[in-house]
């Protein structure tokens, strides 16, 4: 009995003293929470996160990166709790599934005294984050619309394939529609294709049956675009239209590079942004390097002229 009490006391003392005597300082822990690879872009995200983890742990021997992936908002919130209470992280890099529901769980992490980096999807309360690294969704819609206007000469019939109903998708589509306002570009139809090839293929088949003349397709995402390409080819209507995807998948960049007339351009929304966020955060944690509060990665238009710069043949995406 006495022994157990003594043991418990020692344990408690050990735990209390741990942060003081540098036991925890030996390893700086960075938690990274991202959505699981449920679609192509997220697959690229996972790949880049793993690459960055390997690279950073090699670069900084006293850094430990804890990478967790979640299939939905609820699980991601659980992950955050575990990262703080069980894994005892010093900093969190998070790509939230959804902006609004993840805001409070991230706030709790911040209140526990952790450094917080938010990637891609902004929280509804931006004061929580210490660092924000993001692609620019409205910009992506705008750049896509500008390309459409220029390529179509401001006039034509197009169809739009949307992603999964989320803030990101809305931002892109709203900015796109804002930009084509006042032109003679007419959106014939709009449907969700859930950022996946099979749905892109199906929805496009039906658009092709429904509309005898389509001048262009805004697929918004490269996975959707690949499905669209197959449907257009099957219908034998390749000469009639062009397709604009988005993200920067290697297959699509390759097509742009090879001057495929169906795919004249692509708009970047690189999943590599997670690696960038992890690197900046790690540098700040380990080297105490000063940082900006915001890094916005622009939505670059990829054309045959600059495509080779954005071609990563080894990435799974």
């Amino acid at each position: 009995m006495k022994l157990t009490l003594g043991l418990a006391a020692a344990l408690v003392a050990g735990v209390l003293m741990a942060p003081v005597n540098g036991w925890a300082q030996q390893k700086i822990k960075m938690g990274v929470s991202i959505p699981a690879a449920t679609h192509g872009w997220a697959g690229g995200l996972n790949w880049h996160a793993q690459q960055a983890k390997a690279k950073l742990e090699k670069q900084y021997p006293n850094l430990e990166v804890v990478l967790v992936t979640a299939r939905d908002v609820g699980r991601q919130a659980n992950d955050l709790e575990d990262l703080v209470s069980v894994r005892n992280i010093d900093a969190l890099v998070i790509l939230p599934f959804e902006s609004a529901p993840m805001t409070d769980p991230v706030r709790a992490v911040k209140q526990a005294g952790k450094f917080v980096t938010v990637v891609d999807r902004g929280l509804t309360d931006p004061s929580i984050q210490d660092l924000y690294v993001a692609g620019n969704n409205p910009e992506m819609g705008k750049v896509s619309a500008q390309f459409m206007k220029q390529k179509l000469g401001g006039k034509g019939d197009i169809v739009v394939l949307r992603g999964i109903p989320t803030v990101i998708d809305n931002q892109r589509v709203d900015a796109f529609q804002e930009e084509i306002k006042g032109t003679q570009i007419k959106v014939l139809g709009m449907q969700y294709a859930n950022w996946n090839r099979d749905d892109g293929y199906k929805v496009m088949q039906d658009f092709l049956s429904r509309f005898p003349k389509i001048d262009a397709v805004w697929a918004q995402d490269d996975d959707i675009a690949l499905g669209v390409i197959e449907a257009v080819k099957q219908a034998g209507r390749e000469k009639e239209m062009f397709i604009l995807g988005g993200a920067g998948m290697k297959d699509m960049i390759k097509r742009v590079m090879d001057k495929d007339p169906l795919v004249p351009a692509d708009v970047l929304y690189p999943p590599a942004m997670i690696a960038e966020a992890m690197e900046i955060t790690a540098k700040h944690l380990v080297e105490k390097a000063p940082i900006k509060k915001e890094y916005i990665i622009e939505a670059t238009l990829v054309t045959p002229e600059n495509a080779s710069k954005y071609y990563y043949p080894d990435s799974p995406f």
Binding site: A36, A37, G43, W47
Partner: peptide
């Protein structure tokens, strides 16, 4: 399948 595809797409 996710493991086989490295989280991405097998083509």
């Amino acid at each position: 399948v996710t493991y086989l595809a490295d989280g991405g797409t097998l083509s």
